Amino acid sequence: MTSTADTVSGAAPERAVPLRIAYSPCPNDTFVFDAWAHGRLADAPALDVTFADIDLTNGMAERGELDVLKVSYAALPWALDEYALLPCGGALGRGCGPLVLSREPGADLAGRTVAVPSERSTAYLLFRLWAAERVAGGVGSIVVLPFDEIMPAVRDGRVDAGLVIHEARFTYRNYGLHALVDLGEHWETTTGLPIPLGAIIARRSLGAAALRRLAEAARASVRAAWADPDASRPYVLAHAQEMDPAVADQHIALYVNEFTADLGEEGYAAVRTLLSRAADEGLVPPLAPGALAFP
């Protein structure tokens, strides 16, 4: 991943100033937004795209920057006063959760140093909820590192364990590491719900009609990607940071699914459960009633 990147503008804008949007260069995001970002959707507003790592977009949301953002569901309690959660375009799923990696199988994390990609990520909330149940005495220090530095840090002994997401599920063995726990599997076993990872939010001040139009565009972009996956391939691979194309395909298959097209009752239940459990542990502020409702 990268912290900042180029800007991509959609085709002929239908408004004087395109909507400013930020999402990651990860394959699932570029796959989902390809048709919209490149002006292939009828009646969709033009986009001015910035690529940014999820930790940066979480901060953008808290500061009220940009019109539309891909953020972690864990960041919603700090963003929902100014932004509305769109019911599509994000990442939830099964079998796609974060992993905790260590150099030795079965390592004890009590009092140990753990590297994480963000302290305002779903991965971090899942880790803290798991550790509260399973790590007697609690973990030691938490160190925030860029996503691509975590596995090398664990391999080299600079930290005792690392919390990883996305394509690291497919590549951690290349670093000689072991999966201490699959946090998604733990979540699914204890809740029966999908894992809420990344959310699409849009500025409430755009108005209810505009928000509904954005949701329609996001859903249409997802469906366009499914209908013609080859059309998105140049965009996906151009931003996949030398990722093996087969890994990019696995990444998309895991993170783009029916919940990307529509959260539905089960998706909303997963989000509410995550954030209510995290609030009970004092990890996030409690949500106001109706905060997740879409106009």
Score class of each variant (00 low, 15 high):
128 R>I: 05
165 I>S: 11
37 A>N: 05
131 A>N: 09
50 T>Y: 06
169 R>P: 01
121 S>A: 06
114 V>Q: 01
251 H>L: 03
277 R>A: 01
267 G>V: 03
256 V>W: 10
246 A>H: 14
202 A>E: 04
247 V>C: 04
154 V>C: 13
13 P>G: 11
295 P>T: 02
286 P>S: 04
138 G>H: 11
156 D>V: 01
60 M>A: 00
118 S>N: 10
203 R>A: 14
148 D>P: 06
159 V>D: 10
95 G>Q: 14
55 D>E: 08
244 D>P: 09
244 D>C: 02
11 A>V: 11
223 R>M: 07
199 A>G: 15
6 D>H: 13
187 W>A: 00
39 G>S: 13
113 T>V: 15
174 N>K: 13
83 Y>H: 12
13 P>E: 07
146 P>F: 00
70 K>T: 09
234 P>V: 08
178 H>R: 14
43 D>N: 03
185 E>K: 13
291 A>D: 14
46 A>G: 06
254 L>M: 06
129 L>K: 02
170 F>A: 03
8 V>R: 09
124 Y>A: 02
42 A>C: 12
262 D>Y: 07
195 I>H: 03
257 N>I: 15
77 P>F: 06
210 A>Q: 13
39 G>L: 14
279 A>H: 14
263 L>K: 02
288 A>M: 03
116 V>M: 05
108 D>P: 02
94 R>P: 06
253 A>R: 15
95 G>F: 13
141 S>K: 10
142 I>G: 10
283 L>C: 02
170 F>S: 00
34 D>H: 14
124 Y>L: 03
240 A>N: 12
153 A>T: 04
286 P>L: 10
32 V>N: 07
30 T>H: 03
23 Y>Q: 03
223 R>K: 11
267 G>N: 04
233 R>L: 03
219 R>M: 12
57 T>N: 11
14 E>M: 08
244 D>F: 05
250 Q>E: 06
249 D>W: 12
112 R>K: 09
211 L>K: 00
165 I>C: 08
100 V>H: 02
47 L>I: 01
52 A>D: 06
120 R>H: 04
292 L>Q: 07
264 G>R: 05
277 R>H: 05
225 A>I: 08
287 L>F: 03
245 P>F: 14
83 Y>N: 02
234 P>A: 08
230 D>V: 08
190 T>L: 05
158 R>T: 03
8 V>F: 06
15 R>M: 11
72 S>E: 09
65 E>W: 06
74 A>D: 05
203 R>G: 13
211 L>M: 05
34 D>C: 13
11 A>P: 02
156 D>R: 07
23 Y>P: 00
280 D>C: 07
150 I>P: 01
112 R>V: 07
231 A>C: 09
195 I>S: 00
290 G>N: 10
